[in-house]
C-alpha cells in the first residue's frame, strides 16, 4: 500500500498539469459547445451548435479533407517507415540515430516552413527544375502549397512522422523478430516467406500502434495545415480556430463543438491504440 501511495504522490505533479490544462480545457470546451458563455449572456444549455455543424456542408467538406490528409499522411508514412526500418535494421545504431532522430527533434512549424521553401513555386525545387529545363520557368512548377490535394501538408507530415514510426518498428525488428526469423530460416523459410509469415505479423502490432498515434496527431494538429493549406475547405482544427477568432462571440459554441468532435474522434483512435498496445504487451 505504501508503494502505491508513493507512486500516486510522485505522479501528482504531472497529473495536476494534465488535469487542469487538458481535462479542464476539455470540460470548458464542452460546456461552451452547449451554448454556455455567460460573458455574453448566453446561459441556456442547447445542442444548437452541434445541430448547426452537422447540417453544415462546410463541416463535412472539412471532415472529409481532414480524414484525407491524416489518412494519406499516415498511410504513406507507415509504408515508407516500414521499408526504411527493414533496410536499416542490420546497420549500426549510429546510422539510424542520425537518419531518424534528427527529424524528430525539429518542430512541425519549422518543418512546414522548410517544406514551403523547397516545394513552393518560388522555392528551391521550382528553381532547380527550371534550371534543369524540366519546367519552362519556376512559376510553371506544379502548385504543391495551398493546393487542392494538400501535397505540402502531407509532405511535411510524412517527413516528420516517418522517423517516429520507423524507430518504433526498428525496436521490435531488432528484438524478438530477428530471433524468430533465424528460427524460420532453419525451418526452410525463404526471404519472402519469412517476411510475410513471421516478421510482418510480429511487427504489425507496433506498426499499427505507431500509425494510429500518427493518425490521431495529424487529425487534431493545427499549425501545418494553417501554414500550408488552402483557404477552403480547411482542415477541422483550422475551421475551429477560424470560428474561435470570429468577432461575433456567439460563434464560440460552434468552435467548441468542432473541438469536441475532434476530441471524440481522436479519443476513439486512442482507445483503439490502447487495446492494441495491451495485446502487444501480453504477447511480449
Amino acid at each position: 500500500m505504501g508503494g502505491r501511495l508513493k507512486i500516486a504522490l510522485l505522479l501528482t505533479p504531472a497529473l495536476v498539469v494534465i488535469g487542469v490544462l487538458f481535462a479542464g480545457g476539455l470540460v470548458v470546451a464542452f460546456v461552451q459547445s452547449l451554448g454556455y458563455v455567460p460573458a455574453i449572456g448566453m446561459t441556456d444549455l442547447t445542442l444548437n451548435a452541434y445541430r448547426e455543424i452537422l447540417s453544415d456542408e462546410d463541416f463535412f467538406d472539412s471532415l472529409v479533407l481532414t480524414l484525407y490528409v491524416s489518412g494519406v499522411s499516415t498511410g504513406v508514412a507507415t509504408v515508407l517507415a516500414v521499408v526504411a526500418a527493414l533496410a536499416l535494421r542490420r546497420s549500426s545504431g549510429r546510422v539510424s540515430a542520425v537518419v531518424f532522430q534528427l527529424p524528430i527533434t525539429i518542430p512541425h512549424l519549422v518543418a512546414a516552413v522548410g517544406i514551403a521553401l523547397i516545394v513552393g513555386q518560388t522555392g528551391l525545387g521550382a528553381r532547380l527544375a527550371a534550371l534543369l529545363g524540366l519546367v519552362g520557368e519556376p512559376g510553371d512548377f506544379p502548385a504543391l502549397l495551398y493546393d487542392e490535394y494538400s501535397v505540402g501538408i502531407i509532405l511535411t507530415y510524412v517527413w516528420k512522422e516517418v522517423p517516429f514510426i520507423a524507430l518504433v518498428v526498428l525496436a521490435s525488428l531488432r528484438g524478438v523478430a530477428s530471433e524468430l526469423e533465424d528460427v524460420a530460416r532453419t525451418l526452410g523459410a525463404g526471404a519472402w516467406q519469412r517476411f510475410w509469415y513471421v516478421v510482418f505479423p510480429v511487427i504489425s502490432p507496433s506498426v499499427v500502434a505507431a500509425s494510429l498515434l500518427v493518425f490521431a496527431f495529424t487529425f487534431g494538429a493545427f499549425e501545418v495545415p494553417y501554414l500550408l493549406g488552402k483557404s477552403y475547405p480547411t482542415i477541422l482544427p483550422v475551421m475551429a480556430y477560424n470560428e474561435y477568432r470570429d468577432i461575433d462571440l456567439s460563434a464560440r459554441p460552434t468552435a467548441m463543438a468542432i473541438n469536441v468532435l475532434i476530441a471524440l474522434i481522436t479519443g476513439a483512435v486512442a482507445a483503439l491504440y490502447l487495446r492494441l498496445a495491451r495485446n502487444l504487451g501480453r504477447r511480449g
Binding site: V176, L180, D182, V183, A184, T186, L187, P201, V202, R283
Partner: peptide
C-alpha cells in the same frame, strides 16, 4: 538443418 534454440521462440501469432 533444423535448429532448436535456448529460448523456445515459438511464433506468437
Amino acid at each position: 538443418a533444423a535448429m532448436v534454440f535456448q529460448k523456445p521462440l515459438l511464433f506468437p501469432h
